[in-house]
Simulated scan of single mutants.
Amino acid sequence: MKKLINDPAHVVETALAGMAIAHPELRVDAKQRVVVRGDAPVPGKVGLVSGGGSGHEPLHAGFVGLGMLDAACPGEIFTSPVPDQILAATAAVNAGAGVLHIVKNYTGDVLNFEMAAELAEAESGGAVRAVVVNDDVAVRDSLYTAGRRGVGATVILEKMAGAAAEQGRPLEEVARVAEAVNADSRSMGVALTSCTVPAAGHPTFELGENEMEIGVGIHGEPGRERVALAPAREVADMLVQPLLADLPFQRGDRVLCFLNGLGGTPLIELYVMFDEVARILRGNGIEIARSLVGPYITSLEMAGCSVTLTKLDDELVRLWDAPVRTPALRWGV
């Protein structure tokens, strides 16, 4: 294992300490592991809270700021945050307009966010809603989930719901936007290598020199099948065709196409893949109205990528284009 760390047992805490120095506009509690927007709670605004296991950076703490999340609570690597973290984040952003929890569909995340929401409502009397992200078409159930996993749509949902909250919309309306994005998003990924959790010190799974895993999860969970390594053109087809069939997407649709790197794949390869994905979409009469390319939901140093397609209407385009200022996403301000 070759990693730029000190003690494997304290990677998350020391990374958050570094984040606090690099981004003084955020309030970072490295001990409690909560990252909060510097001006939170914002009067009259719905607070947005998300979180999950560390190792997927910049998700979620990198998306805290204007136009996106109000707080994030990172757990240990590939481990759900605990209810106390989520409760502290919820309290920190509650300005009286309610709080929306954005939860990826992993069993530990769902249970701990549910418990924290119950505690928050009992303590403050304020409303807490949750939207569960489950956009991964690869498998129905996995090692971590009951039902589909939450993956790439999480970033898109946090951005669009964040924009709706920034406009001062009420909690039910912000939740409606989040649910609409989740309902019209589909994702699938491919791994070329495994990753190594620092505390484990060895790869999570083994892939042969000429193998790849189609439909892999962001924690290294098995996907649909293990196949022979193939050129980008063929890999793109393996990822995109199941997405088109699942919603289903139709000729004339406008989409946001998100090509996500899993941590160990250089941007030049992601753009090669994006070119191939765009070719397939053009051939099916689907317009890429907006795009995002880069490592935004990673799996430590895993090589590979995922494709997320979100069907767009005029409202969602406006919400995507709205100003955002976070460590990982920034435009319009």
Rank of each mutant, 00 (worst) to 15 (best):
N134V: 02
S194E: 13
L157E: 15
N112R: 14
G125A: 11
A180F: 02
C73S: 15
V132N: 05
G147F: 01
R169C: 07
T154N: 11
T107S: 14
L100K: 12
D136E: 10
A183L: 09
V93M: 05
V151M: 13
L143I: 07
L100H: 12
R169L: 15
A130K: 15
M115P: 02
R149G: 05
G189V: 02
M188I: 14
V103Q: 12
L171S: 08
G62L: 05
A117E: 09
L192D: 02
A91L: 13
P74M: 12
G189K: 10
V128Q: 10
S80W: 03
V133H: 09
I156W: 00
M188W: 01
N105Y: 02
H101M: 13
R129Q: 14
E114Q: 15
N105Q: 07
A71K: 07
L66S: 04
R148T: 11
G152D: 09
A95S: 15
S194A: 15
F63T: 04
E158Y: 00
G168M: 11
P83S: 14
H101A: 11
A178M: 04
R148Q: 13
L69K: 10
R148V: 03
Y144I: 05
E158M: 13
G65R: 09
Q167G: 10
Y144Q: 14
L87Y: 14
A91Q: 14
A92N: 09
V197P: 01
V110S: 07
C73L: 05
D135Y: 04
A127G: 00
A163I: 00
V177I: 14
A127D: 11
L143K: 11
A92I: 01
M115E: 13
T90Y: 01
A164N: 03
V181L: 04
A127N: 09
A117I: 03
A88L: 07
A116Q: 10
S187G: 04
G152E: 07
M68H: 06
L192T: 06
V181D: 12
S187I: 00
P81R: 14
V93D: 08
K104A: 09
E121C: 03
V131I: 12
A97I: 04
T145W: 04
G75M: 05
D109L: 03
T193Y: 00
Q167S: 08
C195K: 07
I102W: 01
T193W: 00
L100N: 11
D135N: 12
V190I: 11
V99H: 04
A88C: 01
E158L: 01
A127C: 06
G189Y: 03
F63M: 10
G98D: 11
V137D: 08
E158A: 10
A127H: 08
S187D: 09
D84E: 14
A127S: 12
V137N: 09
D70K: 10
A89W: 05
F78W: 13
R176P: 02
R129K: 15
A89Y: 05
